[in-house]
Nucleic acid binder design. Structure first.
Lengths: 191, 191
DNA sequence: CTTAAGTCGAACATAAGTGTTCGAGTTAAG
DNA sequence: CTTAACTCGAACACTTATGTTCGACTTAAG
């Protein structure tokens, strides 16, 4: 999976990783970050940045791709298909609130900057896990059915985001986030 | 209150209103809207726009000021200090989710564009109403006390925002918003 | 009807971002 | 050690946004 095309030199590989890391941070905490800022944060020259990612669009897509993949991994590890739905949701929240929030922010940015559609397919793969879990919960009778499924998913993401936001403004300790989130979200969506 | 300084001509007054209206819409639905776009949307020349609001900053502050004032009015009308806290919160949600969301978006924008502090004072006036209401609810024993007050306020705003967002992407009908919001929020924050 | 207030397009200056090219210098890999 | 891959600063072209100035035109107010 790593060596697809022409083999890259090790330092190039390293720089690409550094760029993606920096871009993820900057894009999520300051969406309008410039290419200059990203290059600087990655400890890399502007030209180098452009040589790997010929445009801001491409870079954003790459970051998004990577985050979606990562989110996929993390979600898979939480095994949302196993055990009682409520338990599975708890596991998911506990391990994934961070990644899911990054995913959400990047997707918002991409939608604004790259136009509406584009990566909806990839995005779906992530959201569907949450939606699938909630649907399963409904079938088990533990998740409420009096509201649109759509809204339930929104509620999950929304509170997820709120918790993540409170964490990085220092209003909430990171280790408390999952607990607080759980305590608020579960009563909101269970039947 | 209207005739404070030198008296303005009627057409000027009209244009100022049109500009503020347009700016509110554009700022909330596309934060990075340019002055050109705002002028065009207000049906006004660029020069006229600048003659009333010498800079983007000033315009943003004016819009924010106006929205805060408006939010204040709407909140006051919902009489959050009267009756049982739960009832008062219901009234508040029903009449104010719209304005409160505008307020939230604008404040976020202002914080990003005008630096961190600035209008925190004015902002407080609005948030305090919600916080006061929740505190009263806690005293009455109907609002949970096991989570930070800070977080409860965040939860209210967060779901408010989610509902407003779903409304203007067409995923939720405006007339259903208050009901859905209520049905989700109340279980999340009551004891 | 007179006039002061207001409008507006055109043109300008400035700044910041994007993306490209060039050429010289480094560095990994065989 | 040789070479191809890679890095990087400097300079350039281009675009978009912000504000300003000028002068002619329009309109509300007395």
């Amino acid at each position: 999976m790593a060596t697809t095309e022409t083999r890259r030199r090790a330092d190039a590989e390293r720089n690409i990783a550094a760029i993606l890391d920096a871009a993820l941070v900057l894009f999520t905490e300051e969406p309008q970050s410039s290419m200059v800022a990203i290059a600087r944060a990655a400890g890399v020259g502007r030209v180098t940045l452009y040589s790997h990612f010929p445009s801001r669009e491409v870079l954003l897509e790459a970051v998004l791709d990577r985050t979606i993949a990562e989110a996929g991994e993390v979600i898979k590890k939480a095994a949302p298909e196993e055990g009682p739905a409520t338990e599975a949701l708890r596991r998911l929240l506990r391990t994934s609130w961070n990644v899911l929030d990054q995913h959400r922010k990047l997707f918002g940015l991409a939608q604004r900057e790259l136009g509406p559609v584009r990566l909806r397919q990839r995005h779906r793969e992530v959201v569907d896990h949450v939606e699938g879990l909630l649907t399963r919960g409904q079938e088990e009778g533990v998740i409420r059915t009096d509201l649109p499924m759509n809204w339930l998913v929104t509620t999950v993401y929304s509170l997820l985001h709120a918790a993540a936001e409170d964490v990085n403004t220092g209003q909430l300790k990171a280790e408390d986030a999952a607990g607080v989130l759980e305590a608020t979200l579960l009563p909101a969506i269970r039947s």
